[in-house]
């Protein structure tokens, strides 16, 4: 076991790992003192104890943190089983896209494991595939064709991005957990970006997408544009891009940031041959920011995808 390599690997994603162990110097002084008594058998135990101290929070997590992480965990299960079910449906996903969907499925499993690790015994139990209804009560047909499958995938990922963002301020009391959640959050955004590109490719689009995703949101940009025309199926997806339950959570078409209407004050560069209209500016300004969503609004969206089994298990309540 190469301890230095382990630390180096962790440092790649967590520059402050040494600070978590008091200080770099102290941890290695500690190690040096123990040198003679460390054996192959005791090393994993010792490492485990160190990680528990650094990240393990099985006791002392506030109700806010537990609730926020458990909602995130339930959303991760929703996504994981969605990708897993799609990959197991023969002929659904175009061969060329199977590696990407596999990456996303595996990332969601990684997020599940990370959240379970932080929550410990407080983690929401694995609800299993049976807990979810991806047709949203018969309104969607996600496993019939790739276009519909990707449309719902985009909806789930964009919900995830807004949910993590909405929950982030509640995690500030624990910087390690905050960082873990925000780092998961940006991976969800990467997924959404790729799904949007797969949707365009499938539709034969080469223009990079239309403002608000065009008619029926069939030609989305790689980023959230205005309210996405209500998403792929507005009856289910409009709230994913709309406002939350309080004025702190405006819809994705919001153009006011840091208390200023950015659309009106932004100094747009002059580009020969291009005239920035207010409509163009509003789209660009709204696209430049992803808006958070509060937990009540997130749960209301997610309950669309809950089966009777999921209701019984208390999903998204």
């Amino acid at each position: 076991m190469d301890l230095l390599k382990i630390f180096s690997e962790i440092e790649k994603i967590d520059g402050e790992v040494y600070e978590r162990f008091d200080t770099r110097r102290r941890v290695f002084r500690h190690m040096a003192g123990l040198g003679k008594t460390i054996t192959a058998a005791t090393m994993p135990v010792m490492l485990g104890a160190m990680f528990n101290k650094a990240y393990g929070q099985t006791t002392g997590l506030s109700a806010d943190i537990k609730n926020t992480l458990n909602l995130a965990l339930q959303l991760e299960y929703l996504e994981y089983y969605y990708y897993d079910a799609g990959l197991k449906t023969p002929g659904l996903i175009p061969t060329a896209d199977v590696p990407a969907v596999t990456i996303m499925r595996d990332d969601e499993l990684g997020h599940i494991n990370a959240l379970k690790g932080v929550l410990g015994a407080d983690a929401f139990p694995d609800p299993t595939l049976a807990a979810f209804d991806y047709t949203a009560g018969g309104k969607l047909a996600p496993f019939a064709a790739a276009a519909g499958y990707y449309a719902t995938a985009q909806s789930l990922e964009d919900t995830g991005v807004r949910a993590y963002k909405g929950g982030a301020p509640k995690l500030m009391a624990n910087k390690d957990i905050l960082t873990a959640a925000l780092n998961i959050h940006s991976v969800e955004a990467r997924h959404s970006s790729h799904i949007r590109m797969m949707r365009r490719t499938l539709a034969g689009s080469t223009n990079g997408g239309d403002i608000a995703g065009g008619t029926n949101n069939a030609n989305p940009k790689s980023w959230v544009s205005l309210r996405e025309n209500g998403g792929p199926l507005p009856a289910v997806t409009a709230p994913i891009y709309g406002p939350g339950t309080t004025t702190d959570f405006p819809g994705e078409d919001n153009v006011t940031q840091a208390t200023v209407n950015v659309q009106n004050t932004t100094t747009y560069p002059t580009v020969p041959g291009v005239t920035f209209t207010d409509a163009l500016k509003a789209a660009a300004v709204a696209e430049a920011f992803d808006e958070p969503l509060d937990d009540l609004a997130v749960k209301a969206i997610a309950r669309n995808f809950r089966s009777a089994v999921g209701v019984g298990k208390g999903l998204f309540v």
Partner: peptide, 17 residues
């Protein structure tokens, strides 16, 4: 934090794209 998080995920979308 909220302000920066709104930008962070857009950068992630850019990066993936």
């Amino acid at each position: 934090l909220s302000f920066l998080a709104k930008i962070a995920s857009v950068e992630a979308r850019h990066a993936a794209f």
